[in-house]
Amino acid sequence: MTVGVLALQGDFAEHMAMLARIGVEAREVRKLSDLEGVDALIIPGGESTTIGKLMARYELDKAIRARAEQGMPIYGTCAGMILLAKDIEGSQQPRLGLMDIAVVRNAFGRQIESFEADIPFKPTPERPVRGVFIRAPIVAKVGKGVEVLSEFDGKIVAVKQGNLLATAFHPELTDDERVHRYFLEMIQK
């Protein structure tokens, strides 16, 4: 199994390091040819406007959408969640638009409001995960078939829809492998 990490911009190196620690084969994806042969894709944190524009300029968006529709699992963190969403409040920015969710960008405020918190994550009921939220989005609305995996302070911060997983926070910035392991289980199913 090879997991691709979209490496156009953002904290892709942290995802690569996390996958290496778990012992999964991983590859950085920048071009169409990099996408061939990956079994799943992680879209990292970063600037969603930058990643979205580069995806569109180099036609990665179409290819990723096609693979997702064939069932390829995708996990998006923060900017990755925004890019997976069908609706981005107040924005026409380029996106994949695969998940039936509406997101609000920078929903907690500017950088000075960025925070960490112990948050419940349904697939890991034994103890919460340490959520690192950096200029993070939230999910304001979910459509049918979207499962809410985490709520913090009444706000939806992790969701799953079929082969797609998204978190507003960054497990890749912590030592906790459980969210990534949960995604790897989704690939094996």
Binding site: Q9, G10, D11, G45, G46, E47, L173
Partner: peptide
Amino acid sequence: RTKVGLAEMLRGG
């Protein structure tokens, strides 16, 4: 972690 984290989000940009 949130401070260095923002710097990390800007990488490759």
